[in-house]
Every structure is written in C-alpha cells, then in structure tokens.
Amino acid sequence: MKFEKIFITVGTTEFNELIENIFNENVWKCLRDKIGCRKLKIQYGKGNKPEFIRKDGIKVEIYDLKQSIKNDILEADLIIGHAGAGTCIEVLNLNKPLIVVTNDTLMNQHQSELAHQLQNECYLECTPLSMLHNTLNNFDATKLKKYESGNINKFIEYLDDYMGFI
C-alpha cells in the first residue's frame, strides 16, 4: 500500500531508538520504495534530536514538541507512534491508520498492554521495534476497523440508579 505522507510521533515521552531506526537503511528504503513515502514528519518529544538525518528521496521535517499534533495527524496518510494511550486514542478518533511501535525497555509495560488489546480488536497494528521493517512491508490498512468511541451512558444509568435518581 502507498502512504505518501507519514507522521511519526512519540508524544511527550522519548523513544530515541524508534527515531534512529527510521533512518536505518532498510527501514528507509522500505518507506521510500515500498510504501511510497515522500513526506516524513517526525516528532521526537523529550528525546534527543537525531544526529544522523537521511534526506534522499523523502522530504523530512523534524520537531520536538507542539501544543497540538492534531493537524499533523490529519495531514498524514499513516501514523507511526509510540504505545502511549493519549497518542493511540487521538489517532484512532481521527480515523487514521496507525502502527504502534512498542518499547519493551520502558518500565510502563502496561502501555503496550493497551496497544496489544487495540490490535486484538483490529483498530491498529502493533510491532516491536525490531520488526518494524517487516510490519511496514506487510502493512494493509484495509484490514483495520474503524474505531468507535466508548459508551459512558451505561455507567451513568447505573450511577443514577445507585444514587437513587429515577
């Protein structure tokens, strides 16, 4: 599948390994030749600005943090992100294809738990960093389901009842 504009985001955390990996020759070739990426926007959060930035064949824009990344998500054809809940929800609510790269070195393993659950329900694709290259090669956005927001009403009904409001 072709994705011309790709946005990479790590939210307000850091994930230097992911950012560095994007410029790895194999991943880069895959993005450029297989996926057809022409514009790449990278948000690296609180991590380090990458020292080595490739530019051959893809226009690269890079920044650390922004008040809102909504426009960058809307603009992109594909988002590659970290496993943060905020990132997952924001991208899914904007109905964009998402590949989540899990960071297994992180202490907060429960973050990838959420990403895996969302993958099981076919809302996004989840991959460890070492498999990113393969995942990109085989990625098929048509296999993903549209995310529907949850339903608070049942809880409110229960609460109303419990509190004696009828």
């Binding site: 429960h110 959420l114 949850g150």
Partner: peptide
C-alpha cells in the same frame, strides 16, 4: 465510585489495588 483507567487492560493500577475494597462502585 472508582473508574479504572482505559489504559488498564489486564491488571489494576496501584490506586485501583488499594481502593478496590474501599469503594462502593
């Protein structure tokens, strides 16, 4: 009433573990 975070899929958060038996809902 306590609502466990959306992020918690398989295990309770520390707050959740402490509050499970102290809460009504």
């Amino acid at each position: 009433a306590y609502i466990e975070s959306y992020c918690r899929v398989k295990s309770l958060s520390l707050s959740g573990k402490i509050l499970l038996y102290l809460t009504d809902i």
